[in-house]
Every structure is written in structure tokens, then in C-alpha cells.
Amino acid sequence: MTREEILNGVQEIFRDVFDEEDLIVEESSNSDTIEDWDSLNHINLVSAIEMEFGIRFALGELTALKNVGDMIDLMLKKLAK
């Protein structure tokens, strides 16, 4: 799976979680740039990504992430295993 394919998949998940069908997600997107990205929606995002991509995250991995690009880096590592 390519980086672009992951970003497209993640964007669909963001649109579903935030109920905003025109939402554009970029690698630099984070909780400062997406208004409704609160702690509960963060949990919902992680759950949805885990289910959609069939991967699992540890809490320590997630706390180090600063934006969507970091998340995609982590996903690429997990999907390569």
C-alpha cells in the first residue's frame, strides 16, 4: 500500500468521524488545524483506522505522533510487517 493510498483511506475515515464530507486531510493536519479534533474524536479516529487497516497501535506509539504524516509513517511500518 502506497503513502498516497493510505492518505486517501485516512481522509475517508476523517470525513466519517467528523461528519464532514468535504474535509481535506493533509500530512500536516493535526488537532490544531481540524476544529473538532478533540480527545474523544481522537479515540474514534484510532479505532476506525485500526479496524479499516487491520493494524493495532500501542499507547506509547500514539502519544509521539504530531500530525497525520507521522501517523502515516507509523502505519507504513506496521503494514510492511
Binding site: I43, V46, S47, E50, M51, R56, F57, A58, L59, E61, L62
Partner: peptide, 11 residues
Amino acid sequence: SYINEAYKQIE
């Protein structure tokens, strides 16, 4: 149906 281990959320 699903368990999120990191945040202790279940579905």
C-alpha cells in the same frame, strides 16, 4: 465486536 487496547475503548 472490537477492542481498542490503546485507549481502553470497546465497540
